[in-house]
């Protein structure tokens, strides 16, 4: 029996002494699509950031592919899709250049890109429907297309686990569909997905399990809960501000 892809055991996380997660445990097995749901500020983004080692644990432990995260080195098995493209400074970069950085985890820092790298970048661009925008500057793309660029960057590394932070927040319908298609292709290839979401939209049929984070703990772990109240109305427009997850550092970009 293979080890679970992600194991979180009694994890606790806090920023500046303010606890965000307390005693959270979660397991993701190979082939699963697990959605982490919850309100703004519930700690759902913090949970996946802790899984990726971007925020330190105060207590508990995280394992990836059966290896304690501290000793985990095979990061090319993990593809991370952040919520949005960082400001990235003023220097222009093409879609292809951003997607190509997804190959670094697999290739290493010193080796120049080869034919396999270029083929993987082309395939990732095609998978998210951005092949025709490959040589355009990323800054000229719509929000949804930028999100697809980030997904292509993760896919280019040919990961086994995709971790996505709110992939559908503020993304137009066409991009959501393209994204759902790319995710379906990834799952058909035997991939595992852990994603944070606010609303599931066209992803809903793909989700195999939902975990609801509430007040820093796990309130539900099982089938996707049915929307209730005005959230259930078919034309419910889910609009509200997204607060920052953590105070931005002075020199962080």
């Amino acid at each position: 029996m293979n080890a679970p892809v992600v194991t979180v055991t009694h994890a606790a996380v806090g920023y500046d002494g303010r606890p965000v997660l307390r005693d959270v445990s979660l397991t993701v097995d190979a082939g699963e699509v697990v959605a982490v749901l919850g309100a703004n500020g519930s700690g759902k983004s913090t949970l996946i950031r802790a899984v990726l080692g971007l925020v330190p644990l105060h207590a508990g432990s995280v394992s990836l592919f059966g290896v304690p995260q501290r000793r985990f080195r095979r990061w090319h098995r993990v593809g991370y899709v952040p919520q949005r493209l960082g400001a990235g400074g003023g220097v222009p970069a093409t879609v292809r250049e951003v997607v190509a950085s997804g190959r670094l985890a697999r290739r290493g820092v010193l080796r120049p890109p080869g034919r396999a790298d270029r083929a993987a970048v082309d395939a990732a661009l095609a998978a998210v429907g951005l092949a025709d925008r490959a040589d355009d500057p990323v800054a000229t793309l719509s929000g949804g297309q930028q999100q697809r660029t980030l997904i292509a960057r993760a896919l280019a590394g040919e990961p086994e686990l995709l971790v996505l932070d709110e992939p559908t927040a503020g993304v137009d319908a066409a991009s959501q569909e393209a994204f759902a298609g790319a995710l379906r292709g990834f799952l058909d290839g035997g991939g595992t997905v852990l994603l944070v979401a606010h609303e599931l939209g066209p992803l809903r049929p793909l989700i195999s399990r939902a975990v609801v984070v509430h007040h820093g703990g796990i309130a539900h772990d099982g089938p996707v809960p049915e929307p209730a109240g005005h959230h259930a109305e078919p034309d419910h427009d889910h609009v509200h501000p997204h607060g920052p997850d953590e105070p931005a550092g002075l020199w962080s970009s």
Binding site: G53, R73, W75, P82, G89, S101, L104, A105, P113, S252
Partner: peptide
């Protein structure tokens, strides 16, 4: 490529190992 990745998106570069 590596310096571009780190300067473009430092968190992503960290997750990429």
């Amino acid at each position: 490529p590596a310096l571009f990745a780190v300067c473009h998106d430092e968190e992503y570069a960290r997750v990429a190992g």
